[in-house]
Design a protein around this nucleic acid. Sequence first.
DNA 1: CAGCTTGTTGAACGAACGTACAACAAAAGG
DNA 2: CCTTTTGTTGTACGTTCGTTCAACAAGCTG
Lengths: 204, 204
Amino acid sequence: MRKMKEPAFKRAEPDARRQSLIEACARVLGRVGTAGASVRAIAQEAGVSPGLVNHYFDGVDALVAATYAHVDGMVTGALDAAVGEAGPDARDRLDAFVTASFAPGIADRQLLATWVAFWGLVTARPDIARQHDEQYAGFRERLEGLLAGCGVPASELRRAAIAVTALVDGLWLELCLSPGCFAVEEASGIARRFLDTIVPPRPA
Amino acid sequence: MRKMKEPAFKRAEPDARRQSLIEACARVLGRVGTAGASVRAIAQEAGVSPGLVNHYFDGVDALVAATYAHVDGMVTGALDAAVGEAGPDARDRLDAFVTASFAPGIADRQLLATWVAFWGLVTARPDIARQHDEQYAGFRERLEGLLAGCGVPASELRRAAIAVTALVDGLWLELCLSPGCFAVEEASGIARRFLDTIVPPRPA
DNA sequence: CAGCTTGTTGAACGAACGTACAACAAAAGG
DNA sequence: CCTTTTGTTGTACGTTCGTTCAACAAGCTG
């Protein structure tokens, strides 16, 4: 029987390889936390050699930033999908948005690890702080659209979006950090009740 | 002129030394972030030799955990002081509590750095997760007391405390991460308005 | 099949890390 | 003043880190 010489490695398109490194980074962050997310650990998780990380990213920080952007995009996609499935009613769409924020896979400790790693860079790196500003503004803008659809007056739109974002983020954070403290249903119940206080009642 | 031989170092009581190391750790975390908070950097900040850190703490993680506990105690003290200065009215005291959460020195990026470093340990270390559970429960309990004083019924106390904590934490977090996005006054305004919706109106 | 392009490897390097420990000296007691 | 105690030092060790780069091979081209 002839021994087939297997290829030592497979080539990949730059974008695909970048993607696989990002996903490996997210997995490592979720498993061992910020401290253990070294170039070597991430490369091993992705099944490639350590040198490849520096070939695609300027150091671990840049990879973490890219991972944050990617995970943020995934979350945004999941929330948009939930809004899309909610039907035409504006309030139903808003409720779907906040409820999906606490769904399993979103309110997840492993996901939080990516956020925490990113926040850890904000303190010392102005460019990372700017990236956070932009993505946070994007999230708020999305929420402003949903709130406007529910009849929140334009003059209060900004304040309402900041408030809802803060409440959802705070609930999400504690849900990730202390999953046993309160249930997902409690979180979405609290958020919905809060929405009742800032959204005009729907016409009966 | 006789040259005085200055002492090469000064001894300190164990508690005082521990305290100075904790404060040095907080300063280093605030300046260079989680990644740069090494044993050597913290020891240099405290003006002592590197070996002393391991003499008082079982590694950097334990020091970070102790720093978190210390900073949490300082914040609690500041909030309690604000409540104490607020006078006898229950609602005034509650307002003082949440307003003080956004005061300069509390909503501070350097303070956030300690929190982020601590959160980074929660993912991988169950004992750290338990410590977070306890301190978070303590914060919530304190808030439940203030809410009860305002006439929030006992059956809703738990839910209300979770909600207020989440909103305050969410506002505090974004205030630290993106100080330019909205003002401190906006944050406390949002929080007070939220309190109006869960606290029974005071008797006129 | 030969040649070229380039994604990928893996070792090598210096720097920084956590840890341990023997030597030292400051403070206290006699 | 001498002895004891112990907080503190500073070095040394082994490990792990990020980074670099010459060599290699996979896959395309002709």
